[in-house]
Computed example of a mutant assay.
Amino acid sequence: MTATVRSEVHEGIATLTLDQAQTLNALAPPLLEALLAALRACAADDRVRAIVLTGAGRAFSGGGDIGYFGEVLAGGPAHAQEEIGRGMEDVGNPITQAIADCAVPVVAAVNGPCVGAGVGIALAADVVIAARSAYFLVPQVSQLGAVPDLGATWSLPRLLGRSRALGMALLGERIDAARAEQWGLIWRCVDDAALPEEAHAIAKRLGNASAAALRDTRQLIDAASDNTLARQLSDECAAQRRHVAGEFFNNACARFLARARSD
């Protein structure tokens, strides 16, 4: 059976590639299961310091597999509810959570269309960059009569604000990579040919940073919209107490002091 997700580790960077180009990397159950397993394997691999997540062929992901939806709908509405709901609970949602909770930073390299549930997966990453030819599309409401999923309704308003998040979700219009960068949906839009190199350069930079500090910073920023200023200041202080006692901080300060004394 052909692998649905290709996993490679080189110099501490794991590259996970959705590898079903013939279906535009549609998120069928086998691909989702393989992606979840690959993410968990990377998180448990001491060699891995950062992860790059991308797609094979001309798409990051075309979103949910309509063929699969047709199969489950053939069993009737109750069967579809059970199968799709269980799939989200057991595999789809855990993928987004695994990316968000990953012990190492995750870079999403969006190489082409990023559609539907693929948007939720991509935006769960710590840093998202996109090829200039890529676009983001949330079609569930306008085309399918369903809701955005796999975390899209969580990430979109936090990244874009309510107005743009609702416009993108309700109207189902394509947001090209340049506009996505302008809006703050992604970190950077790059030329198509430069995407792999840029993604790996970012992953390498993140991999050389303190994994614990990266993780705490992600958690602090995610919690900020729900916290009072007083609570956020308290949480920052608690995190800082942990990190200033750590080896990474002490070594970094020693290097800066040595450099200052030599100048």
Rank of each mutant, 00 (worst) to 15 (best):
V119H: 06
A43L: 05
C114R: 04
P196E: 03
M168V: 12
D176M: 00
S163C: 05
F136Q: 00
A258S: 14
A252H: 15
A56V: 12
R47I: 02
L214F: 14
V9M: 02
F60K: 04
I51H: 06
M88E: 13
L159N: 14
W183E: 08
A14H: 07
L53N: 10
P157L: 05
C189W: 00
D191I: 05
P113N: 08
Q140E: 15
L16D: 06
A122V: 03
E181V: 09
I129F: 01
V48M: 05
Q20V: 12
A43H: 04
V115K: 03
D46M: 04
E33L: 09
G161E: 10
Q240E: 12
A59T: 11
G172T: 01
S210W: 12
A28T: 09
G112T: 10
Q219C: 10
I202L: 14
Q20S: 14
A124G: 15
T54Y: 10
T4A: 15
Y135T: 01
A98V: 14
A239T: 15
P157G: 05
F69R: 03
R174W: 01
P94V: 12
V9H: 03
A238K: 13
A238Y: 08
G85D: 02
T17Q: 09
M1Y: 11
A245I: 04
G12L: 09
M1D: 15
A252W: 14
V128S: 06
C237W: 11
A103C: 13
S262D: 14
I186G: 01
A180R: 01
G63S: 12
L31S: 06
R241F: 12
R174C: 04
L257A: 15
K204Y: 04
R164Y: 09
A41R: 13
Q240V: 14
A178E: 15
G120M: 00
V104R: 07
R231H: 13
A239L: 08
A165F: 09
L18K: 02
Q232W: 15
K204F: 03
D65A: 13
C189T: 08
N111Q: 07
L27F: 08
A28R: 09
A201G: 04
Q232T: 13
A146Q: 08
L73R: 13
F256C: 13
A117M: 12
D191N: 07
C237N: 10
G87K: 01
G62V: 07
D235W: 11
C237F: 12
A41P: 00
L73M: 10
A34Q: 09
R188M: 07
L220C: 12
W187D: 13
P148V: 02
A194C: 03
Q20W: 07
N111H: 04
A21R: 03
F60T: 09
R259N: 11
A78N: 08
A122M: 05
E181W: 08
A34E: 13
